[in-house]
Design a protein around this nucleic acid. Structure first.
Lengths: 348, 348
DNA sequence: CTGAAAGCGCTTACAG
DNA sequence: CTGAAAGCGCTTACAG
């Protein structure tokens, strides 16, 4: 392992000077010295040890990302996006998957703090308020993604869930569907997301004077979804249109339709929130409401960057919740075949 | 920030003793000292700084994973699996996406080495032989995944491509398809994977005395696939069955079928290599050849672990290429509707 | 059973 | 314009 001392010896300077060179502080450096150091580095194939630097500088140029559940496509999208941006800034990303498990989340937060990451993006599982609060007090750069915690003044970036649900309801309405429901995943602690999507859906129904059916408004665990759907569709009165709250829910609904022989959109119309890889070639093509992930990651990074830069609490703005606007991509699954015969934007 | 010195002061011992405690070397430690240190740690809410430890111990308990292209589902599967195992061993994973770009790959390798990762899993893009060789010489723990480089003695873990392609060919044959083709992605440098799947396919054809059609055996860039498929299907003689070399290729084939109105398996049968999320509820359900990811990650970790443990070259085994056996999951897309009416294993 | 000292590879005032 | 010294937070022989 070649170190800064080896370079210094070879170039006949002190390690201080080599360090100046490495940090591009050329101001007072003679061209000749610069050239000699450069040469030594090349010859020795020297790569500065980031651990030494991190210890001394008390920063690591690493940030942690703890996703609640890596199986959601959105987690992967966010990770890719943020990694790209961080990479441009010389920051490395450590990815952790809490698996919807607050205990794992706690473990990762502690691990990442021990590793002295400069900041943390968390999709909070919602059960480690003491840890969050501690980090907040210590002024540790922390940004929540996709979810936030009401009681804590921690910044967050997330989709505008009210906009998303109302886009869905309006689109269903304009396709002359009246009786609609929403299905989404939920865990006991993910209060915000669940409340927002479900509340947003209810609000939109009432705003548009659409009938309200409590039994079609559900947030349940993935494992209960087949049973719930069977139950819903065994009744006399069935929903005409369903909004899937996320990609994993969509999978369950499609499985259900396939197994029971329901045709979409003839038997029920369908919209899914989230980017769905196969949306444009599924049969039928699937109407989706997508998050502008690029914009979202940019905003998230901006927030983080500001926090990483300011050391004192003083120049901090109050809690900021950034809501990015979702977009409706109309395809076949949500079109009323009895009313209109046009196909989706990139359909058949 | 509380350090080991704060703990030492509070517990009235030296920092050496605290360090012994932290490293669970209790052998010569009085119970009373132990209790005092434990108490001090609790009270101060002390978390040992991993950077200091890393610098001193010359190891970081971090490993890097550089995937060639994160869009392949297999990359995500591998990452999840290896992260789980590493986590059990107290190792953190840093994930990087080379985006099929050797320049990015080089950049990441250098970055991760500067960060002193203890080992590296790489899905090699195939164009940084000098770097690989350098690491090999330096006895740096390096394991290739999914691909390997012929000329270099670097261990690798990958699917048995010959088995995979022959499973597909045999299954097609037993469904009385004769005229089959293979389509897969390729980049100039991914020589091994491409050769193996294409060679394996050819071998299986000849082994089973099946007709060989050079024009149906292709490895091209994703962006050229639609054009290629159009061309293939515009000819008088069309393939009866197609093997998709991976998930991204499958997407292109499904898009093509959808856009051109081809029915699967009536117009052509289809098998895909890789785990496909929607395989079991797509219409038709899709026959796949999946990699045993758990087994694969375990083998990969075992190799890595062995390399991380032995310092000298001496007790190293010669180059090891571990090939994990793929599994065929029969569903509807590959069944000959003219011959048999049974449906897939988990289909309608 | 415990502590003083050295050192991991860097950076950063500061002196000259 | 360059270098000596101190120190970041740990661990590890070694001494007692």
């Amino acid at each position: 392992m070649v170190t800064i001392i080896d370079v210094a010896k070879k170039a006949n300077v002190s390690k201080s000077t080599v360090s100046q060179y490495l940090n591009k502080r050329y101001k007072y450096m003679s061209l000749e010295t610069k050239a000699r150091i450069n040469e030594a580095i090349e010859e020795l194939n020297y790569i500065p040890n980031h651990v030494g630097r991190s210890l001394r500088q008390k920063k690591t140029a690493m940030i942690g990302v703890i996703v609640a559940n890596i199986l959601h496509n959105f987690s992967t999208q966010f990770t890719r996006g943020i990694e790209d941006i961080c990479n441009e800034h010389g920051i490395q990303v450590i990815l952790c998957n809490a698996d919807d498990n607050p205990i794992k989340e706690r473990h990762y937060i502690e691990m990442l703090k021990a590793r002295q990451v400069d900041g943390l993006f968390v999709f909070p599982t919602g059960d480690n308020h003491d840890l969050y609060e501690e980090m907040l007090k210590a002024n540790f750069p922390l940004v929540f993604i996709d979810r936030f915690v009401d009681e804590l003044d921690i910044d967050a970036v997330l989709i505008d869930n009210f906009k998303a649900t109302s886009l869905a309801v309006e689109h269903f309405k304009s396709n002359v569907f009246k009786n609609m429901g929403i299905l989404t995943t939920t865990l006991v602690n993910q209060v915000t997301t669940r409340i927002e999507r479900i509340e947003g859906f209810k609000k939109a129904l009432s705003h548009h004077n659409l009938p309200f059916h409590q039994e079609w408004i559900n947030g349940v665990e993935i494992l209960s979804m087949q049973r719930l759907l069977e139950c819903m569709f065994s009744k006399q009165k069935k929903p005409e249109a369903i909004l899937a709250g996320n990609d994993l829910t969509l999978t369950e609904i499609l499985k259900f339709a396939k197994n029971k022989g329901y045709k979409i959109p003839q038997d029920f119309a369908l919209i899914a929130i989230d980017h769905i890889t196969y949306a444009s070639h599924y049969d039928p093509t699937i109407t989706t409401i997508v998050q502008p992930v690029d914009y979202l990651t940019q905003e998230a990074f901006k927030l983080m960057n500001r926090k990483m830069k300011c050391k004192s609490n003083e120049n901090l703005k109050p809690k900021e919740i950034i809501r990015v606007p979702p977009e409706l991509l109309v395809r076949q699954s949500s079109l009323n075949t009895k009313q209109s015969k046009e196909s989706g934007e990139d359909g058949i």
